[in-house]
Design a protein around this nucleic acid. Structure first.
Lengths: 188, 188, 188, 188
DNA sequence: GATGAATGAGTATTCATTCAT
DNA sequence: AATGAATGAATACTCATTCAT
């Protein structure tokens, strides 16, 4: 049945692209991605029809990984504040542990190459998290604000916090803690 | 004495570039910028040595304009909360009034073409604002957090809020208000 | 003993390629030909060493088919004018009945990928036809002209006539008739 | 007013492209054309927006040149047969004198990249010739056939004749003469 | 200084052919 | 023999920058 498409190769491409995007931005050429992945120019296109497809795949994979990580970290048997704290901790920790993924994801997030479909798929997976945030906000300062706005506010704070943590590793733990306090004050 | 560089032309280029960047992103070609500005191709390079220089100039101009607008809106004879409210109002209002500038600035902000020098220059001009924020934060939840982190948090919230206001004009006023309430809860 | 090459598959490839060439020209990719033939990519190359080889094979097959059809249509027991008329009728009819083959053959005919060998082989098979034409021309206007020139003149007229017949099906019969009259006038 | 577009350069490109097309076909790359013209890769595109535009320009130029040459050779004060003879002589002579142009034109003629607009423009310029042919045919064998068919028949014969003349220079004159006799027999 | 043609490195994608399965 | 993934050279076109006018 001929050589099958290799998940390994697919992953290699995604990883190589993620690294280069984090270092050089979305302008990274497919040829550089191929070289960095140690494969031929053309092979990129046997795994992804277009550069845009590749970018959407990376976006989806990173989002799913992030969401899965965060979801796994939230215990279901705790009160909301505790759950939110676990969310926040996992969220910021992921970014610090995976700075390249974090940076690439941030760039992809604002790119107009990422389709609504990709974005919505991520939203679906993240539903429990979004619900948790909405739940917490429901009785606080932002109770009247649209949930999508609240969620973006939280995402923005997480992004700022991660950037700071990455730039100041020594203060990472404190920053995450301070971030959570600010978040809780803001939401609750 | 040869013809001197014309401030008018320089401005025309910056305005044209801002518009195109907001519509098409940083990939906009210098040729398109020239055409949009109604000048020749080559003239872009008599006013800005490189495309990167042009982008840095735009970043600086937009930042300075924003800062000046906000500064002008903050009365010096009021208590901190009131000052902060004026700041917030002017900040978000500017973005809604100048959506193209807002969008271009957002893109430039995350670009790796913008130098630290450009970024720091803006920080200097914004000192009074940064001080105000730091002052407010000094006795609140984030009292122990580094001021630069707090400021970025505020900037992030403003960005999120403006995006939402621009996307939902009908709810713009409420969103700005809700944003301020959240900000105050978070900081104070 | 390994599996032998299948004539069926070979034919399938040639048919598929003929169709695609007639629709999309000689630029058709081997991958598309394989897909259209319902076989794999690589199989094309187990039946034909190169794309050029495939094209030469198609040229030869189409030529042979055309020649065989025309030869079968010429009765041996008639006078020359009648034979020539049968030839002409079969020749133009074939083109109208097989427009894809006609179109593909026309493209291959002018391609520089078709070798002299392929071209000469066709000439050999067509000998009886060429002789008939030469015979007819021998006593006419073109009696002093080289036979190869005369034959090409006839071929050209047939091509033009077929193109016209295919483009104007309603006038096909008349055109074929008019073409023969012109041919006879020219030759005899 | 900056360096103006140079007609010389434009011509150089057209000539270079014509030569390469005649040798290597329409697949000739724009890079090779540029190199052969002694200019940079990109300059091809400052003179012709696309490769297709370049090909249409070549087609038009060659057709116009051919038509002008032929028209200039037809005396207006002679009877039809004589005019047709002058036409035929000029037509075949042009092809023999300019074998590369002849070959390139033949390839472009059958290419689907050449627009109807380009083709029609040529038809308009060639009107006197087309009329002459139609006039001659009006009382002959092909009197009932559509003029467009008759014209294509003539073009085909001219093409065949030129090919033969080019391939057999020693017999060129005779072939042209024989071609005319055949043409006249066929038409009149 | 202004203009816009000239340059040539760079881009995503295609495709004939090879080769591991 | 059949499959289809792997390869890498090739392609049309773009664009920041330079430079002749």
């Amino acid at each position: 049945m001929a050589r099958p498409l290799s998940d390994d190769r697919r992953n290699t491409i995604i990883i190589a692209a993620t690294e280069l995007i984090s270092e050089r931005g979305l302008g990274t050429s497919t040829a550089d991605i191929a070289k960095h992945a140690g494969i031929s120019n053309g092979s990129v296109f046997t795994y992804f029809e277009t550069k845009t497809d590749l970018f959407n795949a990376i976006y989806s994979e990173l989002k799913e990984e992030l969401i899965a990580t965060v979801l796994a970290a939230i215990p279901s048997d705790q009160e909301e504040k505790s759950q939110l704290r676990y969310f926040w901790s996992a969220r910021t920790q992921w970014g610090v542990t995976n700075p390249q993924k974090r940076k690439a994801l941030a760039q992809l997030h604002v790119s107009d190459k990422i389709t609504i479909v990709s974005r919505q798929a991520a939203t679906v997976s993240a539903a429990p998290i979004l619900n948790l945030i909405a739940q917490v906000a429901m009785r606080g300062t932002l109770r009247a604000a649209p949930p999508s706005y609240v969620v973006e506010l939280v995402e923005g704070m997480a992004g700022t916090t991660m950037d700071f943590m990455i730039a100041n590793p020594a203060m990472a733990e404190e920053a995450s803690q301070a971030g959570f306090d600010a978040l809780w004050r803001m939401l609750a």
